[in-house]
Each structure stands twice: as C-alpha cells, then as structure tokens.
C-alpha cells in the first residue's frame, strides 16, 4: 500500500440550490518523497480535495464517502478527534495567501510555537528555540529577531516562508501546498519553489501541490493529476502530461497559456465557454460543452460519462475519443500549434 491512497473520494455539499458535487470519485496514490501536482481551474474540486484529506470538512455540512488511506490508516471513517491529532503533525498544509492565512493579531513566532506545542509537550522556551530554528531553515534572516514580528510586518515572500516554517514545524510526512506561490511576485515565487524543492528532499515528505499554473507544476511535480468538474480527467507523469497529453482539456490548458520558453504564437488557443457549475454538471462527459472534438465521439459525449482508463504505463485518461485518434489529434493538430510560428 502506498503512503497516501485516495479511493473513490466524494465530497458533496447539500445547498439550497441542489447538491454540489465538489469532488466526485477521485482515486490516486502518492509515495513518500514524491510530488503530485493537482491542476485545475476554479471549482474543479482541487482545494476541496486537500481539505478533505486533512479532515477539515468533518463536522460540517459536507457528505464525504470513499477512502483516504494515510500510512495504513483510513481517515474518512476515523473520528474527527483522531484526525485532528494527525493534522499539523503527520500532515500539514501551506495556504495560498499567507497574509490572510496567518492570524493578524499574533506574532509569527507565537503561531509557530502554538503549532509545535499542540503536538509536542515541551516548554514554551524549547518551542521558541525550535521556531527560531525553523525560521532560519526556511531562509528568514535574523530569525531570533523576526520571530517576534507580526505577519503584516513581513514581506509577502517572508510571510510565505514563515507559513512553510509553521507547516514543517512538526516534521509532517505529507505536505499539501494549495497555490503556494500565486500571491507572490515572480522572483519571490522562484525562491519559494526552490525552497520547497530543497525542503522536500531534506524531509523526504510526500508533497501535493495544488495550482492552476502549469509552469509551477512542471517545476516541481513527478506526477500530475488534472481535475475538471470534480473528477480526474487525466493522470500521468509530468512527461506524460506535458509531452504527450491525451485529454482535450489538457490540450486546451496548454494552448491557453502564453509561454516564454518558446517563440511567441500569433494566437492563443483558448477553451471556449466557462468552467461548469458543480450543481448542474453537464451530462455525460462534463467537458463536452467546451470540447472542440466532441463531435468525434459518435454521440457518446453527452450521454455517457467516460471512464478513467489507462492508455499506457500508468497514464490515465478520461475521454471517449479512441486512443489512436487522441494521439493523432495531439501530434497533427495540437502540438504543431503550440510549437509556434
């Protein structure tokens, strides 16, 4: 059994307008020391997944089913109190906006000390020393002085470093980073990505990085999972996703982003339409109203939900198009356009 395994995870929220199926049957595995990138647009269910792993939906209105196995323990059926003791210690999370994710009224040090002392019965002085040590390790200069600063007295990059220090303070084996660099400037983003890469090697933790930015995913991930409408629509190694993607949505994402590493294309190739509402998910393949190749599925697109099938060597795709046709479309119609003029 892998270190982390999700089995048909479903997270549904009953609302006045209907049932919101934020995550609808998600399955994946992750080993220690490996990085999984989860890519998706707003409402794809990527953040809800991470909160479900941490057990943060427990006690709320969410209806959760399926299994989450962490190091041989099942978490969906575990008690809220038990999952709480794992949170912060065995699994930790880094959030997007460190300014709003840290309490404005407490010092950075106090917040790290608090995170450490909840899981370790040590004196305040010991915890403080540990916090200074952690701040130093994430590259904050003069940590013994900065520990008494408030979050708003830090710059954006330093705040995110402090956030990482807080998440790593209990040496978690699973680290989930939800858009860890989205709120940061590009030069600072590069520093933080470097830092996360180094720390992961040092701590040998399993890392899940959730983002909408394909560039960030490509920098860090071993495997990539693309989510759409609460489901995984493509899963594979980073090479699979960037070199031989097979799902029209993945193609669309790649065609949508201007890239600095290639000559400039005359036109971007966006995906038409907008991401689906999670209450009225389109019938059949959730992506079909936006899919440029929907017509080639022989009418199955809007009636049948495609299954997530292996195309080769662990590369999974959820699409009605036959494998050969997908490859032909990628090679002949998509890839040449991405290569630029």
């Amino acid at each position: 059994m892998s270190f982390l395994e999700l089995n048909d995870l479903r997270v549904h929220f009953p609302t006045d307008d209907g049932l919101v199926k934020s995550v609808d049957g998600l399955t994946f595995k992750l080993e220690r020391g490996k990085t999984l990138g989860i890519v998706g647009e707003s409402g794809s269910g990527k953040s809800v997944t991470s909160l479900a792993i941490l057990g943060l939906h427990k006690g709320g209105r969410a209806m959760i089913s399926g299994e989450i196995w962490l190091d041989g323990e099942e978490l969906v059926s575990a008690s809220a109190e038990h999952v709480r003791t794992l949170r912060g210690k065995k699994m930790a999370m880094i959030f997007q906006d460190p300014l709003s994710a840290m309490h404005p009224y407490y010092t950075v040090g106090a917040q790290i000390v608090e995170a450490y002392r909840i899981h370790h019965h040590v004196s305040k002085a010991v915890a403080r020393k540990h916090a200074i040590d952690m701040l130093g390790r994430v590259g904050i200069p003069q940590p013994e002085r900065r520990i008494d600063s408030y979050p708003h007295e830090f710059s954006g990059g330093m705040r995110q470093r402090a956030m990482i220090a807080m998440a790593l303070s209990c040496d978690p084996e699973l680290l989930i980073a939800d858009e860890p660099t989205t709120a940061l400037d590009v030069t600072v983003q590069a520093q933080i990505l470097d830092l996360m890469r180094d720390l992961q090697q040092e701590f040998n933790s399993a890392l899940i990085i959730i983002t909408h930015d394909l560039g960030v995913v490509a920098e860090l991930s071993d495997d990539i999972l693309v989510m759409y409408g609460g489901k995984c629509i493509e899963y594979g190694t980073a090479e699979d996703i960037f070199e031989r993607p097979e799902h029209p949505y993945t193609w669309g994402l790649l065609g949508s982003m201007p890239r600095l590493d290639r000559a400039r294309t005359e036109r971007l190739m966006p995906i038409k339409g907008t991401p689906p509402s999670l209450i009225n998910v389109p019938s059949g393949c959730a992506f079909h109203p936006r899919c440029a190749f929907e017509g080639r599925t022989g009418g199955k697109a809007n009636t049948q939900v495609p299954e997530l099938l292996e195309t080769e060597g662990g590369h999974l795709v959820r699409c009605h198009l036959p494998r050969e046709e997908r490859r032909a479309i990628w090679e002949n119609e998509i890839k040449p356009n991405l290569e630029s003029v």
Partner: peptide, 15 residues
C-alpha cells in the same frame, strides 16, 4: 534577465 529566468516554464525536459 532575472525576471525572465524566474518564470516557471511548463517544460519538464529542460527543468
């Protein structure tokens, strides 16, 4: 130069 270099690039071969 530094700005351009800092932009993460979706190219796994060259990372």
């Amino acid at each position: 130069t530094a700005l351009l270099s800092a932009v993460p690039v979706p190219d796994v071969k060259r990372r």
